[in-house]
């Protein structure tokens, strides 16, 4: 099992309960869109999966490890198997676009000679071949998003999480990004994408998990006709 949620609840320090009792599981090679209104807990659910938080209650399983009871020292190895495209990009301002993409490889202790061409290829692929030495401060929102995407994918993660990955790009590019995720999923990665873009979700016809007020209310493969009818 790649991801397993059993009665997972999450409350922040101020007492606000953002997830109530969430249950689902994903095996290798599965794909899920995560939708729901703002404040429904999508980002919090992703944060639990990429180990930014631990659940307040319930049992969280990642790569067949019980995260709820895992030692702190066990977390980095699990995090290295996850590629995350953060909603706010989270690029390091003092590094170039190239260095930001290379970051997971440096952290994993991979030698520069081993990842240099991969990083370059990814940046070329996302259309930033001539911006490799650019500082994130000089990049547009869309360019930052593409750097963040390249960084999330460079280590060929087993699990890909993306939080509104098309939020800052035009529809055409958004669709291209989604098609890349689908292709990576076809190659074996498990993918979870949180998005508001229902048109994209409908167009791609992939299974959807829907959160409302911290509860998982629906987990189905959408019927495009039904989605169209519900707006």
């Amino acid at each position: 099992m790649i991801v397993g949620f059993e009665n997972i609840g999450l409350a922040y320090e101020d007492g606000a309960e953002v997830l109530r009792s969430v249950n689902f599981s994903l095996d290798e090679g599965q794909f899920r869109f995560l939708t729901g209104p703002s404040g429904s807990g999508k980002t919090s659910l992703l944060k639990l999966i990429y180990l930014a938080h631990r659940p307040t209650r319930g049992r969280l399983t990642l790569f067949n490890n019980n995260v709820t009871e895992a030692a702190r020292d066990d977390l980095p190895a699990m995090r290295r198997r996850i590629g995350v495209v953060f909603q706010e990009f989270r690029l390091l301002g003092h590094l170039t676009a190239y260095e930001n993409v290379a970051l997971p490889m440096r952290i994993a202790g991979v030698g520069q000679n081993q990842y240099r061409e991969d990083v370059r290829e990814l940046l070329n692929w996302v259309g930033l071949g001539d911006r490799m030495d650019a500082s994130p401060q000089t990049l547009s929102g869309g360019e930052k998003q593409r750097v963040a995407l390249a960084r999330a994918l460079v280590s060929k993660p087993d699990l890909i999480l993306a939080d509104e990955p098309t939020g800052n790009v035009d529809p055409a590019m958004g669709e291209k990004i989604m098609r890349l995720f689908i292709e990576l999923n076809r190659l074996g990665s498990t993918v979870i994408i949180a998005t508001h873009d229902l048109n994209l979700v409908k167009a791609l016809g992939k299974p959807v998990m829907r959160l409302e007020n911290g509860d998982l209310v629906d987990s189905t493969t959408p019927d495009p006709a039904a989605w169209r009818a519900s707006g």
Binding site: N124, W125, G127, G129, K176
Partner: peptide, 8 residues
């Protein structure tokens, strides 16, 4: 353009 992916 640079705002598009170089290769799909």
């Amino acid at each position: 353009t640079q705002t598009e992916f170089a290769d799909q």
